[in-house]
Simulated assay, not measured.
Amino acid sequence: MSADVHSYLKATETDIESIPVIDISKLIDGTDKQGVADEIGRVCESLGFLYIVNHGVDKDLIKRVKDMTERFFNLPFEEKQKLNIVNSGQTLRGYIPMFGENVDPEHTKDFKECFDLAEDESDISPFFGPNQMPENWPEFKDTMEAYHQAMVELANKLIGAISLSLGLPHDYFYNKQKHPISIQRILHYPPQEGSITREKIGIGEHTDYGFLTILSQDDVGGLQVKNRSGEWISAPPIEGSFIVNIGDLVQTYTNDRYVSTYHRVINISGKERYSYPFFMDMDFDAVVEPVATCVSEDNPSKYAAYKCGEHKYRRFVESYEHLKEEKIA
């Protein structure tokens, strides 16, 4: 059965000029951090989405994550439900079943299932605490936590580049990341058939809540990005690449010089789609406000200061029913 996609959900096929590909090898090895930073900055001004290649993340680790992601989502539903994110309260770790999270709840039910983890910790507070992991599967835990750590290290390099692109010291944002919020997510999007409208798609249109997202995706496709002209364009898989996009925090820090970009997923491939986004933020109590290099007499600050964690938690409350009765500890 083929899919009949509503016109609002259709996207223009992308070429390389639409979403640029940046070789970050000279950022990784330190030979030209500023040059790569300037490239990233130009894309953040024009779109906020880019592909990165030569990123240095181990290919075998990526493959293991992809293999285990498929195995995890093929577990019986009862096994996955034992790890339901509701069990973790404000820590927000574990399994999210179909329609358990909706990022655009006024318009869309998200046709996806997820699993979230981060650094395993004993102290519990919003976004921090122990991971929930499948029983008797230590390889899953070890691999996912190793991948999370690899993403933290890559994100730190990219965040340093964003600092440089703004005329700030390389470590400017590191000072706000002594104990940052981070989430490693794995995702499963079943294929959709028949009549497809905005009411139910893989994930509804949204901006990301935090600072930076690093996405690995399989070869199925389905990611769409809204460009500065208001057109939806496709973001197809490129082998060996990650997709990087900036989030709400960067838009605030840069006083709208860099803008957090809307995106969504619609899987009409006829195949199961899997993806592996990593989200990097600041410390929970880090103050978010426009930086000095993005404010002037002609361009005054557009934002009042707010705390990173409180902003992110409010966005999660909009998506998760079980948080609506809880208060931040």
Rank of each mutant, 00 (worst) to 15 (best):
D123L: 10
I124D: 00
S125Q: 12
S125P: 14
F127G: 09
F128H: 10
P130H: 07
Q132C: 07
Q132W: 06
N136M: 01
N136G: 04
E139P: 15
M144Y: 08
E145Q: 14
E145P: 00
H148G: 09
A150R: 03
A150L: 02
M151Q: 14
E153T: 13
E153D: 14
E153Q: 11
K157P: 13
L158V: 09
I159P: 15
I162E: 13
S163H: 07
S163L: 05
S163K: 12
L164C: 12
L166C: 15
L168W: 09
L168T: 08
H170T: 12
Y172S: 06
Y172T: 13
Y172R: 15
F173H: 06
Y174P: 00
Q177D: 01
Q177P: 08
K178E: 11
H179M: 11
P180L: 00
P180W: 00
I181E: 07
S182T: 12
I183M: 11
R185V: 10
I186Q: 04
L187C: 10
H188G: 00
H188F: 04
Y189Q: 03
P190T: 01
P190G: 02
I196S: 01
T197F: 03
R198W: 00
G204S: 10
G204L: 13
E205W: 06
E205I: 04
Y209H: 06
G210Q: 05
L212P: 02
T213F: 08
T213W: 12
I214G: 03
Q217F: 04
V220N: 04
V220F: 04
